[in-house]
Design a protein around this nucleic acid. Structure first.
Lengths: 355, 355
DNA sequence: GTGAAAGCGCTAACAG
DNA sequence: CTGTTAGCGCTTTCAC
């Protein structure tokens, strides 16, 4: 309607540097300055349109919007970061191979759709201090909100991080008043798994879990382990715990070793599905006769060729909720939130009838 | 050696704002200013130590380093971005559920270890213009190098992006002189797959691929499709192409449909392993008798319960190479690079003996 | 060998 | 309603 095209070159001259040359090859990204010049207004005006702040006339908004489109303007996140927000939510992920984390990301992505926030993931370095580096990297990049999936970062570091950015911890069993927590009901889940095995008549049940550590650690697999021990003890049964490094391959080796050493277990409760896949692999390779139950219910668990009984953790909903919590924090909430999600047993063929 | 501790509070007073209060709770992150004050030098000096630039005495370096450690100083990436580098490499990923992309990330992560660069991933939004948003988001965040895995972004956009940041495209079959390319030998791979099926005696072979598009598109699955058509035509066989949206579930439905419509195919060549898993699922559910071959050789393919014959693409090496290319570009290379990786057939039980 | 100062692109007071 | 201005934390000449 309004917005007459300024004389060619006028904007560029005014901005002191040409944004385009010849056929329109961008030499450098347009800045707010360029847009202002092009629209014939001040930088502040452009900034207001950008943030749609109070006090902008429709006419101005139109001209500015047009100028932004013409110049293909995109605000510099770095410059914004210097003043405040980056419109970025970061997720630190311990292990891309574990498809449960993928479920989380899917939920988070969906929850962010329609917001101005962008999701970025930082994979933990292999062998590093379990995600600590990745977390720091995200903090360095001034994300507006942070989701930490590796739970094994020490309390102090978490509190420190939470002091500078809204933080949601995934899966921690303890609470904090500094950061929010989204977790599954690990104790209940482990109980479901064991009850299922007991119902099937198993009494010699092994538990495959991650490397030994403080038995009271507030981590998901620690909780599952404690519940396993409690359930076995309750029934006067002997516990048999196998430890393994994370990943399908280490799990495979640990299981083979247990089998070769003559375990009498008729069932294995694996701390998560990726480990369970390793168990299944070892069982298949050795011809052992063992029921296997996993945890998380990743997509592959329900594949007919695998058919792994698993405790379904609603990763998508948990990821979405984590994002919502962050958005609430950004919007001003200060009280810490702590939410536990129910889990559900998905019985399948890997836990056949009798032992 | 030198570096006497400055009187308590001196540094803070000089910096004009206290970084810590009381027991050491950080109020805000320490800045280069704080470090300078603490070490009793100028900001420029600290910056030099940081970048270990020329002209710093050992004594000064020590004092500065000590001050940084004491203040727990971490440079602001945003501020750095305003002047140049962010020390960040970005990967745009179309689909976390596809474990081939995980292979790429693993390789990239490994290649980055020991460098000052941090890897961040941006998952493509579901249903968005195939990764375009994620790519832009990464560009907005001024990554120093960019790896694009979704190949279906239009040429123009890629060239424009490549003008502002070193870019490696994954899997594109065409070349560009603006960006680098890392690809697998899709034509050779498809040939291996089909040859394998022919050798087994199959003549009615279907190909399951992504939705229809320009048959000459420079995308991996387009190349595999063309090679499939060529191989079938060469032998005077009828081609049977099934199209599906990406993902295991759509693949499952497409396959079921084909089966229910009475396909006579005795073998299916799936464009990638995730699709192949869907095919296997449908085959298992319907009891159909079909050989299945996939592409990528993701970890699950070799699981004994799945045992999917697949064309192994060296994702880890490709991811690592992409990172190296970026690092070379950052170091100054200007000529475009284009590297094609050999693939290898992994025959397994999913392609049994005779049709 | 060290420091002063300019400026990257943006936001947020504040003045007109 | 619109424009001016002061930084945010860092890098980088350029003097000393």
């Amino acid at each position: 309607m309004t917005a007459p095209t300024p004389p060619p070159g006028a904007a560029d001259a005014a901005s002191g540097a040409s944004v385009r040359v010849g056929t329109g090859t961008p030499l450098r990204r347009a800045t707010i300055e360029d847009v202002a010049a092009r629209a014939g207004v001040s930088r502040a005006a452009v900034s207001k349109v950008l943030r749609d702040a109070y006090g902008v006339s429709d006419a101005m908004r139109e001209r500015v919007t047009a100028a932004m489109a013409e110049l293909n303007y995109r605000p510099s996140i770095a410059a914004r970061a210097m003043r405040g927000r980056t419109y970025t939510i970061g997720i630190e992920l311990p292990d891309l191979a574990n498809q449960f984390f993928t479920r989380i990301v899917r939920g988070a992505t969906a929850a962010l759709e329609g917001t101005p926030y962008q999701l970025i993931l930082a994979p933990a370095e292999t062998g590093s201090r379990l995600g600590y580096r990745a977390l720091e990297a995200l903090v360095d990049r001034q994300v507006d909100g942070l989701i930490a999936v590796s739970p094994r970062v020490d309390e102090d570091a978490l509190e420190r991080i939470a002091a500078s950015v809204p933080l949601v911890m995934f899966g921690r069993l303890d609470k904090s008043d500094r950061y929010d927590v989204v977790a599954g009901d690990d104790l209940g889940g482990a109980r479901l798994a064991l009850q299922h095995l007991f119902d099937l008549g198993h009494t010699r049940i092994a538990h495959l879990t991650l490397p030994k550590e403080d038995p009271n650690a507030p981590y998901p697999h620690s909780g599952r382990l404690r519940e396993y021990l409690a359930a076995m003890a309750d029934r006067g049964l002997d516990a048999e715990v196998w430890h393994t490094d994370d990943g399908e391959e280490p799990s495979y080796r640990a299981t083979r070793e247990a089998i070769e050493q003559g375990t009498t277990a008729t069932a294995v409760f694996a701390a998560h599905d990726e480990l369970a896949f390793g168990v299944l692999r070892a069982v298949a390779d050795t011809g052992a006769d063992m029921s296997v139950i996993g945890y998380d219910d990743v997509a592959m668990a329900s594949h007919p060729a695998i058919s792994l009984t698993s405790v379904d953790q609603p990763g998508e909903r948990m990821g979405a909720r984590a994002v919502e919590m962050l958005l609430e924090r950004i919007a001003g909430r200060t009280a810490a939130a702590h939410e536990v999600f129910e889990v559900e047993l998905k019985p399948r063929a890997s836990t056949g009838p009798a032992p």
